[in-house]
Amino acid sequence: MTGIVVDIKRFAVHDGDGIRTTLFLKGCPLKCVWCHNPESISFKPQLSYIEKKCIGCGECADVCPAGAHSISESGHIFDRALCTACGKCAAVCLGEALKFYGEKMTVEELVPILLEDKSFYDTSGGGITLSGGECLMQAEFCAELLKEMKERGVSTAVDTCGFVNRSAIDAVFPYTDIFLYDIKAVDEDVHIKCTGQSNGIIIENLKYIDSRGGKIEVRYPYVPGMNDDQAEKIADLLCGIKNLVKMRVLPYHNFAGSKYESVGMENTLPQFGMPSDETMAEVREYFRSRGITVCE
């Protein structure tokens, strides 16, 4: 079975406990305006091009079946309209200017890669995290991969936005040690404004996981001007979740702008400032005052 992979990040330290390897899968049902991983939204493969890294070697032009790359007097010209995102150019790019997002990888291929840092997981209480995009859009693949990892004694986490069918949760539930669960807003209109979708399913699924006794870490991405008024309602919601282990408030940052450009997407990042350390401390303190464990 294959999954569509965006990236693999080792020494991920904020995606669950301990030292982890995070596998990012491609495709997401939400369109969060602040998305930091725009290359993971679409299910289709995409080519990223960072012009300043190009050394003008022309290897890409030689292998491109669609003629999207050419080398002229003025240097490398990339015509994205012609690009079919086959990924051939990224494989030969010498300057590492071209990167292919959307490689199809099998469970068998991924298992040894995810095991490379097993000794680090073991000493730090870490493991692997499946993320995205929305990894549960490829739930059967996730389930198979998680099962393989569990069989090898690796702790597992699933990072999800919750906007998925219940069957997806059922598929991974037996092999998932903890769900890292995003709650962006409780008010439906705010949620729609932020993500383009209603949050009914998300809240239901959160309660469903809780009802089945699944461990949950909730993440609240705190975006000034978008969902910064939701803290109280989120706290209300979380007070009813029995298996909530802890929560994390993630400060919005706008460092991802160049990523949008590199994959030829329109930059939707809100032009608000990033929240100050003091604001973040206050928000975290608020949740603590509601009896919720908050990690720094």
């Binding site: 030292i19 000493t123 730090s124």
Partner: peptide, 8 residues
């Protein structure tokens, strides 16, 4: 994680 790194 850093402590884990050293231990590993």
């Amino acid at each position: 994680s850093c402590v884990g790194l050293i231990k590993t």
